[in-house]
Amino acid sequence: MNDRVTIPTSLARRANKVLRPRDAADVYAHPRGEFERLVEQAVLSHISTGYYALAPLERLGDPRWRPDLAAAALGVAQADYGRDAVALMSITAAHRHGTLPRAIGTAVVAVPKQRPLMHTNVGNVVFVKRDVHRLDLERVETELTTGWMTTPEQTALDISARPQLGGMGETDAKSILQALIRKIDWTVTEGLARDQRRPGALARLKEMTVA
């Protein structure tokens, strides 16, 4: 760590460590230029156009640090829509639940508005328009922010409904669902399928228990 590296307290204390230049408008007269300086000092890591990640305290000044893709995806979504309007879902939630052990190059996050794929320096982010207040969620902590992700039950339904979302192949989706089946509460899953009008996804999921 470079002892000369500094970061304004108001930025360092932000709950979400994904920052946009506009978030520092009350700190810097010219935030975009200051952000580029902080990137050169390895205080910030450039994620994508207009988005930067603040390095953890122990990695400040280390140019090798890059944020985790899921953390970056959740942070970007929170920066634009707020903590309680977004959630990690599909294969990204499955990875967090330990049912997809290998690293993946795409993160999937639920947001309130339709939005195109985002290319970042750590992978791609797929945004899915969903009302997260209708989803079954649990807390998730990442290196950049704390927020929400779908529960195993919700994740299983989502993947069963859209098995190719995020670039999953048929083999990946089947493997993930078989692992999730061992974690889910069927009463909860059936209730979610009923409330969200997903009988087809539930039926496909149940088929896998006898496959």
Results as ranks from 00 to 15, higher is better:
2 N>C: 04
5 V>W: 05
6 T>C: 02
11 L>E: 09
13 R>Y: 07
18 V>I: 13
19 L>G: 01
19 L>C: 02
19 L>D: 05
20 R>G: 07
22 R>Q: 14
22 R>D: 12
27 V>R: 06
27 V>S: 01
27 V>P: 07
30 H>P: 00
31 P>M: 11
34 E>R: 15
40 E>K: 15
43 V>Q: 05
45 S>K: 12
47 I>T: 12
49 T>W: 10
56 P>H: 07
56 P>M: 09
57 L>A: 13
59 R>H: 14
61 G>P: 03
64 R>D: 12
64 R>W: 05
71 A>W: 04
73 A>G: 07
73 A>M: 09
77 A>S: 05
86 V>H: 08
93 A>V: 11
93 A>D: 08
97 H>D: 05
98 G>P: 03
99 T>K: 02
101 P>Y: 10
102 R>P: 00
105 G>T: 06
107 A>V: 08
107 A>G: 04
109 V>D: 05
110 A>S: 11
110 A>K: 06
112 P>S: 10
112 P>G: 09
112 P>C: 08
113 K>A: 12
114 Q>S: 14
117 L>C: 07
118 M>E: 13
123 G>L: 10
125 V>M: 00
130 R>C: 03
133 H>Y: 12
138 E>S: 11
141 E>C: 03
141 E>L: 09
142 T>C: 05
143 E>W: 01
144 L>M: 03
146 T>C: 11
146 T>Q: 14
146 T>H: 13
147 G>Y: 08
151 T>M: 08
152 P>V: 00
153 E>R: 02
155 T>V: 05
155 T>H: 06
166 G>M: 01
170 E>H: 07
172 D>G: 01
172 D>K: 04
183 K>W: 07
184 I>C: 05
187 T>A: 15
190 E>M: 12
190 E>L: 05
194 R>T: 12
196 Q>T: 06
197 R>W: 03
204 R>Q: 02
206 K>G: 07
207 E>A: 13
